[in-house]
Design a protein around this nucleic acid. Structure first.
Length: 221
DNA sequence: GCCCAGGGGGCTC
DNA sequence: GAGCCCCATGGG
């Protein structure tokens, strides 16, 4: 399992996915704050239910830092029920807003100017923001060159022989960071394409490998 | 490091 | 209509 072969495959798989599936148009949000809210609400939940919660917040004029700061947590939780774990997630939204006002005077622009590594550490210090959520925010809200890893990434690349045993978030992320040129647009599309393949073909229970664009990569490594 | 709670909505069987 | 899964995380 040579390093060079692995590097080539990481890039070839991206090219294959992009050429067969095209751009995915992520992140589906109108503003930076919407990306952040979506990243928290989508945790362990499908995007459909998350979308309903966001539209509910929009309907109540709550896609605003001022309003989110002012409103009671319980009122938020009622509106985001569809995204599941609604009490927890209302608290997590509040945690982020509190963090932003405490650290950056409520300014996403001020936050965006900080260095990526520092920002990642700060995001991870927020209760309710783990590595995947932090990296999604860095990449999709702040356009920082960070590769987002998720369970689909692990499943797909594990099935294609990149690793045999349980792998840490960091090691999996490094596999991509080391083998790709740091490019926000590529990182954006690659993660989105992986999610699409994971949802559509590489399912946990009934894999549709015969229809997967990556079927010819079954012995990639 | 493992195990469990958080939870609605859609899909499968 | 029961069972499973979904763009995770934190606490014990």
């Amino acid at each position: 399992m040579g390093t060079s072969k692995r590097e080539v495959s990481i890039r070839k798989i991206y090219q294959k996915l992009y050429s067969s599936l095209g751009p995915q148009g992520w992140w589906p949000a109108k503003t930076r704050l919407e990306v952040i809210i979506g990243a928290i609400l989508v945790q362990n939940t499908n995007w459909n239910n998350t979308k309903k919660a966001i539209e509910n917040l929009r309907l109540h004029r709550l896609l605003s830092l001022k309003e989110l700061r002012a409103i009671d947590q319980k009122n938020i939780s009622f509106l985001i029920r569809s995204s599941g774990y609604f009490r927890m997630k209302a608290k997590r939204l509040k945690n982020f807003v509190d963090f932003l006002f405490k650290e950056f005077d409520g300014s996403l622009n001020a936050m965006a100017r900080r260095e990526t590594g520092e920002l990642r550490e700060k995001l991870l210090s927020i209760n309710g923001v783990g590595p995947e959520t932090a990296d999604s925010i860095l990449l999709y809200a702040f356009k920082k060159p960070v590769f987002v890893v998720d369970t689909y990434t692990e499943r797909i690349f594990s099935r294609h022989g990149f690793f045999k045993e349980k792998i840490s978030y960091q090691v999996l992320q490094d596999l991509f960071l080391k083998n790709l040129i740091a490019d926000v647009d590529v990182f954006n599309e690659y993660h989105a394409l992986i999610v699409y393949v994971g949802k559509t073909f590489c399912k946990a229970r009934n894999p549709l490998c015969e229809k997967c664009p990556l079927r010819s990569f079954s012995h990639a490594i």
